[in-house]
Simulated scan of single mutants.
Amino acid sequence: TLGTQTDYRDGEAQTDPYSPDYVVRSGSVPELLALAALTWGRGLPAGQEAMEVIDRIREKRAWEAALPAMDSPSNIAKRLKMMEEMERKEWALREEEIDKLQKVQLEVLKKMVWRQEEKQTNLDAKRLYDIWQNHQEAKEEKIRKIQRNCALMLRKLIAKRKNMMGKLERRDIIKEYTEFSSQTYAPLSRMGFFPDNNSACYAAKNFYLNSFAGLCELEASLPDSVRQINIKAPKPKCTTTETGYIKRSARLEAVLAQVHQ
């Protein structure tokens, strides 16, 4: 035989357990047949609830065996009384099971409601944050607008204060050129001057730089010492001393050269 090793457990490949056929003797009712309705995944493997069901089945079988025979009026009355007690007991068990199921359903419903409330709370918080953010942006825009209007009004008041009497003043050219903060040196865009519009007029235009003929003429005007570069080769380093010994640095360079080769 050959052994094999897989990545899966036996439980992952296990199907429903095999249940062989059986034959019941006449006149006998095995207790094991009471569990025939239980299958794998539906009662098997047996848990606490399945064990309680099995115990109740055993108690009922024992109760059925203890019922008196219906051969006399007293036995019939006793049998009816026992059956009524058993019926009340079964109803009590059913009510208890119903209460358990209702409690489980209530817990599940509570969890669902809590999750829904949490989700709704998050959505409301996000919506409120978006609204607050929009209000903040609107407020900041209003503040910037108010600040611009304030600066404009202050400039108007300052200009109006300079000429409170409303007299007409002639242009003082000397004063404009002596003050470097005047419109002559630092014109303002709000006064209608945009220096970047005519920036091309400040570009350097030269015949020697903008044409090939100018570059050739400029090169011809340069002296030979600038156009012809003389590079002197460095002298070799002296590797020996005055007494004829090889220097340590030279020996180290030779060793490194051998290692490199």
Rank of each mutant, 00 (worst) to 15 (best):
L2W: 08
G3P: 02
G3K: 15
D7V: 08
V24E: 00
V24W: 00
R25L: 06
S28V: 09
S28P: 02
P30D: 14
A36I: 13
A36P: 00
L38C: 02
G41L: 08
A46E: 01
A46M: 03
G47A: 02
G47T: 08
E52S: 00
D55Y: 00
R56N: 14
I57P: 03
R58G: 10
A62W: 02
A66C: 11
A66I: 10
L67Q: 11
L67T: 11
L67A: 04
P68N: 11
D71H: 12
S74E: 14
N75F: 09
I76R: 09
I76E: 14
K81H: 10
M83A: 05
E84T: 09
E84R: 02
E87F: 02
E90Q: 12
W91R: 13
A92Y: 01
R94A: 06
E95S: 13
L101C: 10
L101I: 13
Q102S: 13
L106D: 06
L109H: 06
K111Y: 09
M112F: 08
V113E: 15
R115H: 09
E117S: 14
K119P: 01
Q120V: 08
N122D: 05
L123R: 12
D124Y: 08
R127G: 04
Y129H: 09
N134S: 04
Q136W: 06
E140C: 05
E141I: 01
E141A: 04
E141D: 01
E141T: 04
K142N: 01
R148N: 02
R148V: 01
A151H: 05
L152M: 00
M153A: 11
L157W: 03
I158R: 14
K162W: 09
N163G: 10
M164I: 07
M165T: 08
E179I: 09
F180T: 11
Q183T: 13
Q183C: 13
Q183V: 06
T184I: 15
Y185K: 12
A186G: 03
P187C: 13
S189Q: 15
P195E: 08
N198G: 04
A200L: 14
Y202H: 07
Y202T: 06
A204P: 00
N206T: 04
N210T: 14
S211N: 09
L215D: 07
C216T: 14
E217S: 14
A220I: 05
L222S: 07
L222G: 03
Q228T: 13
N230Q: 11
N230C: 05
K232S: 03
P234V: 15
P234T: 15
P234A: 13
P234H: 14
K235R: 12
P236V: 14
G244M: 07
Y245P: 00
K247T: 03
K247Q: 01
R251T: 14
R251V: 13
L252T: 03
V255R: 15
L256I: 15
L256R: 10
Q258R: 07
V259C: 06
V259A: 10
H260A: 15
Q261R: 11
Q261K: 12
Q261V: 11
